[in-house]
Design a protein around this nucleic acid. Structure first.
Length: 266
DNA sequence: AGTTCCACCCGCACGC
DNA sequence: TGCGTGCGGGTGGAAC
């Protein structure tokens, strides 16, 4: 379920429930999910205390008492929740973190695409990520510098995590709609005005979604958000554009669906 | 030489 | 039953 707003929502929840807790037990049901790290999740994680939880791109980052970090990427279908240890068993839980107060933090992931890392420092895993789109230091001018000189289709560029961290399929489509740019447009053909509009659209869309706790999608992996009600184009093939009424079109870019208004977006 | 592009892959659920 | 689809992203190789 994760793009930036959904991960942000989960992180805010975890900040209220697991900070200060010591991890006393780790059970891995799906070993391939635990990526080879310099530190061993099973032997080196128990006993460590969770000091901070934050988000970087689409990763959840737990800062631990030894200075090491526990990193979780939810990929397509992952979810992290905290419950009592005697809560009903969940067949899709792949990794269980037992907490000292008796609760459990569970990593649930039907599709098994998610990943867990334990590393001495976050940069080993996060080093390739581009800037945070909502970081106050990431200004419009910095975005212009970053996009100038790039070529190729704009949508894959927005979803490139080394270009910008946290934007995925939904928010790329919604931001391009707001900026009135077609997803197949090439970055080198964008005017400066379009680039500036795109920067502002990305921020507007992400901020609005975070306000609404992200988006709940039809497949139901993630619940609680309501940004899906604000979708202008995503998942709206054939439905009228909220601006002009034209039917929204769907095309494939890089094996993924892209939605846009053929009238509003050029 | 470094980018960019593109098909394919990874488990699984769901809808038609 | 079978096929298409999917809130991610890495890979390897071809094309620029």
């Amino acid at each position: 379920m994760p793009e930036l707003p959904e991960v942000e929502t989960i992180v805010r929840s975890l900040q209220k429930t697991v900070i200060g807790q010591r991890i006393v037990r780790v059970v891995v049901e799906w070993p391939p999910m635990v990526q080879r790290s310099p530190l061993n999740v099973l032997t080196e994680l128990p006993g460590q205390r969770i000091q901070e939880v934050h988000r970087r791109g689409k990763y959840i980052v737990f800062s631990l008492s030894t200075g090491a970090v526990l990193l979780i990427h939810l990929k397509m279908s992952g979810r992290v929740y905290v419950c009592a240890a005697d809560a009903p068993p969940d067949p899709y839980v792949r990794v269980t973190f037992g907490l000292e107060d008796g609760r459990e933090m569970r990593f649930r992931d039907p599709r098994k695409f998610g990943r867990v890392y334990l590393a001495p420092d976050a940069s080993r895993v996060l080093g390739h990520l581009g800037p945070e789109p909502l970081d106050e230091h990431f200004t419009e001018e910095m975005f212009l510098v970053r996009i100038n000189g790039r070529r190729g289709m704009i949508k894959p560029l927005l979803m490139d995590q080394s270009f910008l961290a946290g934007v995925g399929n939904i928010y790329a489509d919604e931001a391009l709609f707001q900026a009135r740019i077609r997803p197949r447009r090439r970055a080198e053909t964008l005017s400066e005005e379009e680039k500036r509009a795109l920067y502002r659209a990305i921020q507007r869309v992400l901020i609005r979604s975070i306000e609404l706790n992200g988006a709940t999608l039809a497949d139901g992996m993630y619940q609680g958000g309501s940004f899906q009600n604000d979708f202008c184009v995503y998942s709206r093939e054939g439905q009228p554009c909220p601006t002009c009424g034209s039917p929204i079109e769907r095309i494939k870019i890089g094996q993924r669906s892209s939605y846009f208004c053929p009238t509003c977006q050029t």
